[in-house]
Amino acid sequence: MAIIRYPSFTEWRNPLLEMERLRKEMDRLFVDAMGRGPAALASGVFPALNVFEDADKLYVQAELPGFKSDDIDISVEKNTLSLRGERKSEDVANVSYHRRERRTGKFHKALTLPYDVNAESVEAHFKDGVLKLVLPKAEHAKPKKISIKAE
């Protein structure tokens, strides 16, 4: 099991990994200026995630080709999102394999979200091998607009 804190800047477990992370971070700074680049701040834990936010929702996306929606387990507790799943190997009998690049196996990834979310109304969609989660922020985590009183 792997737990990813967001953001995971404070971990210095392995100096070599940290150097690698810094290098990637520099890559990102340079390449992002030109529009696109390698995936930044990747945790290296399957599956790779993209997280977006707007004023009242968080969006989490993952590419899970060949998974069945029954084989994906999603749970949310306060601000922790946990994803589990398995891609089963589909061994075919009486054939000779020329290439085997598609990996099979299990995964478990936990992500600490920057806000508490309303677990009751989380939506999950799975289409064309892409998992898309919509997580509404909890009422108390939403930004509050403060009006200025004219005197």
Binding site: E63, L64, P65, G66, V92, N94, V95, S96, Y97, H98, R99, R100, E101, R102, R103, D128, G129, V130
Partner: peptide, 21 residues
């Protein structure tokens, strides 16, 4: 990423292309 396997009568190819309809 692909898997390719050959049987007596055919060649089968599987390719992971998430997000492509």
């Amino acid at each position: 990423a692909v898997d390719i396997y050959e049987s007596e009568n055919e060649l089968t190819l599987l390719a992971d292309m998430p997000g492509v309809p």
